[in-house]
Design a protein around this nucleic acid. Sequence first.
DNA 1: CCACTGCGTGGACGCCATCGACCTCAGCCT
DNA 2: AGGCTGAGGTCGATGGCGTCCACGCAGTGG
Lengths: 156, 156
Amino acid sequence: MDAIDLSLVELLRGNARLSYAELARQVGLSAPAVHERVGKLEASGVLRGYRADVEPEAIGLGVTALIGIVQDSGGDTDDVLDAIREMPEIESCYFMAGVESFLLKARVGTIAELEQLILRLNRTAGVASTRTGVALSTKWENRPQPVTPPRPEAAP
Amino acid sequence: MDAIDLSLVELLRGNARLSYAELARQVGLSAPAVHERVGKLEASGVLRGYRADVEPEAIGLGVTALIGIVQDSGGDTDDVLDAIREMPEIESCYFMAGVESFLLKARVGTIAELEQLILRLNRTAGVASTRTGVALSTKWENRPQPVTPPRPEAAP
DNA sequence: CCACTGCGTGGACGCCATCGACCTCAGCCT
DNA sequence: AGGCTGAGGTCGATGGCGTCCACGCAGTGG
């Protein structure tokens, strides 16, 4: 992970469809060299994939909600997690410090579907209660941070 | 936005680096036809961009926090929004129903940086208070929903 | 009936991805 | 010192891909 790798990651965060030739020009290497570096970044898990950023409303997902989950005392966290994982509407899942064990981001088409989702969550074994807030609008999402300050790190 | 467009969006959500030729094979059209369709989807804002999905720890962003913002009574929402927008650590920003006007997702390198960020937010004009929860781990994030059920919609 | 428009195909051509051969340099062993 | 070795780069070749253009083929309105 040197400075060139960081540049590549940065460039691909901004536009994942850049060609290797274009990346090569930007970082001042040859295309095969960039090809190999990107391959290694993928293999090492730094680059986990490439996703199109889609306008949610365009694909029928106009309702966004943030849902906090309070666990039953004695409930198994992994069981709850497995149950949540089976719900495709849950786009993100964070395990949190605090009273609420999980914070979920869900996207559905309608408020009625959100209601169904919340009912399903409340019915899930290990879930004591939920608290959901509806997003009136998404101002932005997954904005890539401009640069990576070279954080001091132990050399391998 | 017909079924083929939906397939293209779906395919690109799964892997934004698929070639037009590969997309063409998958949807049963020629490469130029796919090229044109994708171009129109981009122009119409359905496809907003293509992002590499990066392991945050790998680029020095190991701390994730969710922050709720309560506005001052009488504070201007847009002013608060503008201030938030200037903070690069805020990756997502939702305008919410409820006591907290905004729900932010922030990523920073260290707890110390998070502290600084929270102080900055509390110092921002129009912000009455903040409430932040730290994510102990991110189970998953921005998982693409499997398919889009063809939701009934008014034809333009 | 015919022109127009939208949307597709097929062909052409230059650029790109990718492979293999080779180069260079640093580190290390003898 | 000298040479081995491995990492990581360039260069050149080639087959596939992106992209432009001309054309075909509905469906539509005058």
